[in-house]
Design a protein around this nucleic acid. Sequence first.
DNA 1: TTGAAAGCGATACCAG
DNA 2: CTGGTATCGCTTTCAA
Lengths: 343, 343
Amino acid sequence: MALKSMRGAPRRPTLEEVGAVAGVSRATVSRVVNGSPKASPAVRAEVERAIARLGYVPNRAARTLVTRRTDTIALVVSEPEARVFGDPFFAALVRGIGAAVSMKDLQLVLVMAQGTREHEKVERYVRQGHVDGVVLMSLHGEDPLPGAFVEAGIPTVLVGRPKGDPVVPFVDADNRGGARLAVQFLIARRRRRIATITGPLDMCVGVDRFEGYRDALTAAHIPQRKGLVQGGDFTEEAGHVALTRLLEKNPDIDGVFVASDLMAAGALQALRAAGRRVPQDVAVVGFDDAPLARHTSPALTTIRQPLDEMVAQTSEMLFRQVAGASRTEHVIVPTSLIKRKSA
Amino acid sequence: MALKSMRGAPRRPTLEEVGAVAGVSRATVSRVVNGSPKASPAVRAEVERAIARLGYVPNRAARTLVTRRTDTIALVVSEPEARVFGDPFFAALVRGIGAAVSMKDLQLVLVMAQGTREHEKVERYVRQGHVDGVVLMSLHGEDPLPGAFVEAGIPTVLVGRPKGDPVVPFVDADNRGGARLAVQFLIARRRRRIATITGPLDMCVGVDRFEGYRDALTAAHIPQRKGLVQGGDFTEEAGHVALTRLLEKNPDIDGVFVASDLMAAGALQALRAAGRRVPQDVAVVGFDDAPLARHTSPALTTIRQPLDEMVAQTSEMLFRQVAGASRTEHVIVPTSLIKRKSA
DNA sequence: TTGAAAGCGATACCAG
DNA sequence: CTGGTATCGCTTTCAA
């Protein structure tokens, strides 16, 4: 008895206790807490007073145990923090999904899952039932996480097509088409020695944008040279490094398609450092239409992905699954060219 | 009956079911799941086989209901995503706290809490018992969140001193002392028209660093001019803008103390754009010793905050509270000057 | 070492 | 409209 309140919080009140104070049963209190229509105004008022007085807050665990819902959604990111926290695409996605989730009165939590160890922890976390659904983004290689989630029956949506067979619904931009658009534009601008800085090739988005680049060259009968291709990891720094290398090997390039705006920003800096004028000497096209594309100098010509739509689709697919409907589906949203000054 | 499995996941196995398969009671299964020493090897093996066969995963809600622990920690950030996702300080903190939490076999989740609405949702989320403890960072103004958490008996630690009376344990760097160090250094370098770009003044870190600036000027009997002070919000862009303004009003400044490295990077760009040489014309000192401080040109002289130690202290204070020990304490870690090229 | 049984706090069904 | 009560799945005495 005396031991009970020895340390820690002074045990929070329960439905039963609220009921005692309000002079009703725990069932009735539950009803008013959940806004059930069957509860007389008088009783409701009384109960609400008791709730306020006791500072009652429903116990999630107990509620979840019976309802089987947690009212929280996880956004799982398979990526080192350093990268995540630099990329405007992530920021926009977090904001968008967060808003959508909030509208449904759910809570969004971000979960980082890098190395194998973390992956396992996250898998456990999700399977144990901490959340009602998962949005997974930035998948590298053939990640087992999505498979594990569907198998466990957890509503899951991927942002970005996964490598391999997509067993999970996903939303992605038309990366290949967008890249093609970018390079076609460069070609139309009379560029012939067009290089590219790719994204990580262990990610579908990386290879798709690279393929688009090749498509366009092939269609225009421009021979491809291996030296015109440099890999990057979507960071600004990688863009800088890659472009510098490109210039060393090919002093004569006159156009570059960079697989992300952030990398393009880095590339632009490298170009300036090398004394090349953009777009006169080298035309540059990025990808994402990130906010920063407007603020580079010169402003970046880029491929826009309709983020709002991607967010909307993702949320909708997730909520549908959470609501019970289940079917693997994919959505590819179109991309478009945004002309600014760099090309 | 038939309805039960109509849709959704095919109900996950329970302890009871695992017990049935293994031919033991649910109590025994619970013991092996929790690695209790009292379980004969033979039985243990049998149970483990059953667990594997059924793909059993403990139900968190049920477990939490009785143990009163969730094994998860929340890192709550009161900030728009856009800002969070750009700041290297956040990234480092997330990584650090994440690692510490992981060592204790807990799971870290990030929760964004901007506007009032979100604040309320986060408060509910935490009070309902979704997590065992909270690390709160980037508090603006007099945020009610920390108070609400302690009142609810949730173990909480703040990163960064809050404004007002600190009722919650916090860890912070010696911001004022660090700023003083920075400005003293500028003065020692014979700079006399020293400007500053401050952080948000609704945050303690913002005013502390500003006070340090004033301390140093006062001590050196250098008169302070209002026009030498520009506010920023810790973003790179703000740094750029602020420095540009500073230059307009005071073409003759010869030194700048910038309250964060990210802003300093922006300031450096503005300086270059204005044709000022750093450090010859204008010396610059930043704050944070973020990774990028090494890569600006010129490399940034800055004030280092011992992030590792801050992370260690934060985690330790949190775990102590979670373990039951409770007492409000504060830790201020020392800062130091890192000399590079910008001053 | 193992099993039976008593909760943990909330929901929801069934009477009244 | 309200109260009694069976569950939800797990941990944890208490006996055997």
